[in-house]
Design a protein around this nucleic acid. Sequence first.
DNA 1: GAGTTTTTTCTCGACAGTCGAGAAAATAGA
DNA 2: TCTATTTTCTCGACTGTCGAGAAAAAACTC
Lengths: 412, 412
Amino acid sequence: MLTKSSTELVRQQNSVLVLATLRRFGPLSHTDLSERTGLASATVSVITAELERARILEKREQQAATGRGRPRVLFQQRRGSAYLIAVRIASDLVQYSLADYAGTLIDRFEEPRNNLSTSAASFTQGFLDALERLVQRSRIDRDAVLSISISSKGIVDSSARRLIWSPVFGLEQIDFAALLSPAWRAKVTLSNETLLVADALAARMDTGGEAGFRGLAALSLGHSVGLGIARRDRFGELQVSAPNFGHMPNSEDGKLCRCGSSGCIEASAGFYGILRMAFEVPPDTIPAKFVPIAEMDKIALRARQGHRMSEYAFRQAGLALGKGLSRMLSLYENMPVVFTGPGTRYFDLLSRGIEEGLIPSQHVRLQGLPQMTISPEEATLVLEGHLHRALAEIDDEIAAVRMGNAPPAEGG
Amino acid sequence: MLTKSSTELVRQQNSVLVLATLRRFGPLSHTDLSERTGLASATVSVITAELERARILEKREQQAATGRGRPRVLFQQRRGSAYLIAVRIASDLVQYSLADYAGTLIDRFEEPRNNLSTSAASFTQGFLDALERLVQRSRIDRDAVLSISISSKGIVDSSARRLIWSPVFGLEQIDFAALLSPAWRAKVTLSNETLLVADALAARMDTGGEAGFRGLAALSLGHSVGLGIARRDRFGELQVSAPNFGHMPNSEDGKLCRCGSSGCIEASAGFYGILRMAFEVPPDTIPAKFVPIAEMDKIALRARQGHRMSEYAFRQAGLALGKGLSRMLSLYENMPVVFTGPGTRYFDLLSRGIEEGLIPSQHVRLQGLPQMTISPEEATLVLEGHLHRALAEIDDEIAAVRMGNAPPAEGG
DNA sequence: GAGTTTTTTCTCGACAGTCGAGAAAATAGA
DNA sequence: TCTATTTTCTCGACTGTCGAGAAAAAACTC
């Protein structure tokens, strides 16, 4: 511990513990909380009382009596205590969601990104307008929004909350922190999209009772390729990161990538790479900006019917993924891999190449093939990740603020 | 925090803080400690008093008066409080070191690994004997040794303390925990050698006042290739890991590696790989078990004199390293790279290939070339890492044990 | 050499937090 | 209405940190 500890910090940590336990295991009674957290009953009393006074928790309506004895009263997060906004910037649309402190979705809409070459400047205006619309439609006090969680594919500087490189805006950087700080009190977080997928999947595993769960990698297959990794740190907590997998150098095949380099994994395994190979376009051709999924389906159909070059394109894509995975596993440690995104519908065509890429490496020879599964609903997982992380952050903040005085704003 | 906190834990953490501060900044007075740790003077008093009673700390002999006022008395770790043993298993020798709680070396000897094909079974006997000799020569109570820190190249399972694969024993696994638990009370840790190098270098940076130090990678060049990474975690503490870099797949050139796979980085950049290439031996030839450094020097000399194939061999080695580094940096984040080991004497011959390997990647195009330096004294760094980690672990353990009663054994 | 100044260390009471045990509350069944 | 049962609440003990001021120990002053 490089930093000092104090009794006040103890209270803060235990408050977070109570809030997090309540999130994971639904509404709980005083006794449940004491059991699950390991805290003494008296301690739970003090903490819940404080959180109730601050209007963070509330007692649930009386439920059916369970039997003899004094009935349990369940604590739960009070919906109106806080709100959060999740924004998912995809290549063809932007998704805006509003949720309350209990994690239930209140409002949601999408805006198609009308012009694919829209500049960042014109995007930001629409972005600010959309946030405004979100709170006004649900009649929520703007200051009751405590977290704005934004995600995009690409490379983000999460500490500076700036988009460094994205398939959508290229090198045009957007500083979301600066953009939102004048009008919004909320904390702004910027995450890689596949990081959120990994977070959501890991949280599911963790809550779902998977006993020895140590970590996983989420691999998103689509027009671009993204990787998210969730692993337990030395305290047993899940830490999540999004290495730049799609643009990791794969091989010197001269395949031009969207990022301007050549030989990236994406140049072989992204939709545009598969398309290029299937149609025998020279590998240094400038990649297609957007490939409709129908187009990909057509190539896949032909591949399944035995068309050599289409089959080969998918196989090469799989090979690039497999080799990339074997490198990633060498540099981290063995962990299950979950595939997600629209590309999973071609998994039958990719899998042989993936295995071919994995098998020759020393890592796989020692540890065996990683467990590989498919979880196609990427958008759902991204939203789930947004909520999970934003709520955890709000909980932390609530516990950090000295409670007892300023009751947070009341919404709706 | 997934786990509860308590006032006792606060004391424990603050005790560790005091011990760690004392380690980093040498003997310190009461006032220094209070300033450096941020703890109140009264708190420092209680903690140091407790540690003094437990005979962990002692007051230093009076030093030259500094000026007016009551003179400061300096606290320091008491040498005899504990001891540690560091064992470095290299390919040609095993190095045994004994140090005291203050971190000063007491005894040290090396045993040549007489026969390179020695079995693990015969090794363990010599190993146990050597440890015995170490404590007897210095007349130290065996139970005063609180940590035995072992290092080897290769892949270790540090939690299970088993060697999974090493260049020395191959797949013959050695379970050091089981081997030592009957006779020794000490905690046993098993680390990858280059991990310790990274740890030592990072600790130097950290203490040496490098302001914005965020992390580094140590790359060991020799008969085999090893990587250690040190990075700050979210609490600002240095976390260190040793990914399997040497056997990360590099390219499908068919170069046979010592591990049995082909195309590993080591197959190009390890000494045997360079030798094979310089002499134009077919790439699938079984690699030399051991390459004398004189042999390598000869090849380097020829390369510097313009001999094409020797030059090419080093360049190919550099290329494999550079490509590997660009992949590693993609999967982690940008950080300085420090080269160490005997291979650094050929850095002039490697550097061009290294840059060639790095430059084409998207990561380098965005972040620039990583800062690269040389720090050749690998053996020194390994020992430094051993001491640093083992002492930190002993400090943790001391703070965890309820102090005040059982005073630890007195040595020498 | 006695008093003064200065600096450091030590000590005391206040405050914050957790814990165990038992009191109080609230229900179902006798 | 009384009793058994279960849950929640409350009280005093314990552990820990902190700020302020007392005590200690040296150098400086006259």
